[in-house]
Amino acid sequence: MPSEDRIAQALEAISDTKDFFVSSVAMSAEEVRGVLERERGVNENPQVRLAHELGPFAAGRIDLERLAPVIGVNETLGEETRRKIQSAFEALMDLKKAGDEIFTAKVPLDGYLRGTVFAALGRVGVAFGAARSVEWALHDIAPPEGVEDALERFPPNLWNRAERGCSPPIVIEVEGQDLRAASLGELLEGSQKIVLVVNGPAAPAPLVRLITPGVTVIQTDDPTQLSALAASPGPGVAALMPEGAAKFTHVPGEGKGLNERLNVEYLPEKEPKRALGAISAFQQVEELRQLASMTASVEAMATMEVESGSGAPPMDEAGQLASWLIHQANFTGV
């Protein structure tokens, strides 16, 4: 399937998160418009503005010279402040109009995956930068250190906790040989969703290192499986892999135990023998074995559950592991 189609599928899969972000940009643009509307510019004629706001029904009926001083468009903003807010407004409007393009990026051949993701998030993160700029302008605060032009780029290292909870999803096109997934770990915070559309030959289980209890990790060649990524509230990464790679989903919301969270649909038997670009064969084999051992423990836990009966109240992960170990050691009934 051509990669444009797969990108479209990836965007479709994260469309709820994307729409939420776009709506938030629109809402914020409207809020900033509200600020500009309430805070009259020093040189602005309030009557002219009121005439616009009230529309033709008021024309000839309402005396704007009398109304203007009454309904409080008196506050003024300095020219400089107003200009800054206006620029932030325009930045938000530009993002709103930009369409899907701001949610996608491509890693150049032999390029650095993390760098591309970081830059792409920095570009769409201008939404946060613009909102911050309004705050700074209104309260006459200088932008904190490390911020150059918040309306040009505002990368994830500058986002606060609340912003990371509302982070924009991103779809990244990458060649299999450049898919060094571990580098993405630090970006998987808040509600960050990353979808990787992987082209060409790829390692069999490159995302396995990202499996940690709170992160959704999906490796698949079936775009419909991406819905689990969109549905999870926390951070997550999914890769639309070429054929032959392992297929699994790790969804934190499914339960506390690894056996509940992890579902391995396909585990390749053949271990890779050749390096892919800078990714050594050894590393690829490591990843695959890690997934295999996880699969084994999940299966064991499942067996244990059937044996112990399903009516008992569910146990936490430690409890499950302990009873599994006891089971393995044949200590049951002691």
Binding site: F20, S23, S24, V25, A26, M27, S28, E31, V32, A127, F128, A130, A131, R132, V134, E135, N160, A162, E163, G165, C166
Partner: peptide, 15 residues
Amino acid sequence: MSSACSLLHLAEADD
């Protein structure tokens, strides 16, 4: 109605 959040609201550091 829309589901969205105010980015301005998020911008204020809140600890």
